[in-house]
């Protein structure tokens, strides 16, 4: 085999592997679109379920997921960015910070059902928040912490040291330097991490199973201490718990959930490209 042939073989193999990664994703998306697109109309996304969920729309579940995503953002973002700033800018290499880093890595590896049980024990029962939006948001927020902390810390560390030096040498304090130089420059990366974390939270079933989800609640929640329906759990319910459920509604629900998660991911990459392009150095 000549060098040229070896090169072509390698390129061929690598392309094939890359294609193998893409194919299942495209197939899943196409499959859901084809099966679900017929159900997707204005009525489906704006009305409440009727006749034991076998008719009508999924509006409460859609809004529930939107509310939970916002709740997750509120619970997660301040804590995660604070932790990332601490780890990237202030923490020295001590035993404490090594434990913190270890904890973050391990948090990322915990199965989501365990977060659900933790949420049930800690927020629903111990803090007596009940099965509620606030309990679910806190549970999802904790689950989202590691990915947001890691991406935010990376984004902060990627800001070149010379900007910190210049800012400090001009008499800015450490915090002024972080606020007016480091964070603005790290923002594209931080926002990307936040949105990716939230898109994962929006699609999770297990953490909300015991902490927030209503099996069937054909109205909007009244407060953050109320239960709500949510798309992933609703999809689980109508796929496994309700006999004789029309397939069209199942696929329609799956399509809506997928569109929400994919559009969050899309927004993340648009934000990243836009803000990167604006960057001048």
């Amino acid at each position: 085999m000549t060098r040229q042939q070896a090169h072509q073989l390698a390129v061929g193999l690598i392309s094939a592997v890359a294609a193998l990664v893409v194919i299942p994703i495209v197939l899943v998306i196409l499959f859901i679109i084809v099966r679900g697109i017929g159900t997707l109309d204005w009525e489906f996304i704006t009305t409440v379920p009727r006749s034991g969920m076998k008719e009508g729309g999924i509006m409460p579940a859609i809004l529930g997921t939107v509310i939970l995503t916002f709740g997750t953002a509120i619970a997660c973002i301040p804590l995660a960015i604070g932790a990332a700033i601490y780890l990237a800018e202030y923490a020295r290499d001590t035993r404490l910070t090594r434990w913190v880093r270890l904890a973050i890595v391990n948090l990322a590896g915990i199965p989501s059902i365990v977060y659900g049980l933790f949420g049930l024990g800690a927020f629903v029962l111990f803090l007596n928040l009940g099965t509620s939006i606030i309990a679910g948001s806190l549970t999802l927020g904790i689950m989202t912490l590691p990915v947001v902390i890691s991406t935010a810390e990376e984004a902060i560390l990627a800001v070149p040291q010379r900007f910190r030096m210049v800012s400090l040498s001009l008499g800015a304090t450490r915090w002024q330097t972080i606020r007016s130089q480091v964070l603005p420059q790290a923002m594209p990366g931080i926002i990307t991490g936040v949105i990716l974390g939230l898109s994962r939270a929006a699609g999770e079933t297990a953490p909300i199973l015991f902490t927030v989800s209503a099996f069937y609640l054909p109205r909007l929640p009244h407060s953050i201490f109320d239960q709500t329906m949510a798309l992933p759990y609703h999809l689980y319910v109508i796929s496994t718990q309700v006999p004789d459920m029309p397939l069209s509604i199942q696929y329609g629900t799956a399509l809506v959930l997928m569109l929400i998660v994919l559009s969050l991911t899309l927004i993340a990459s648009i934000v990243r490209t836009k803000m990167r392009r604006r960057r001048e150095w």
């Binding site: 010379r162 900007f163 030096m165 210049v166 800012s167 040498s169 130089q181 603005p184 420059q185 960057r279 001048e280 150095w281």
Partner: peptide, 10 residues
């Protein structure tokens, strides 16, 4: 201080 590499801030 003025540094070796010109470093304007964004």
């Amino acid at each position: 201080m003025v540094f070796a590499i010109p470093t304007p801030l964004p």
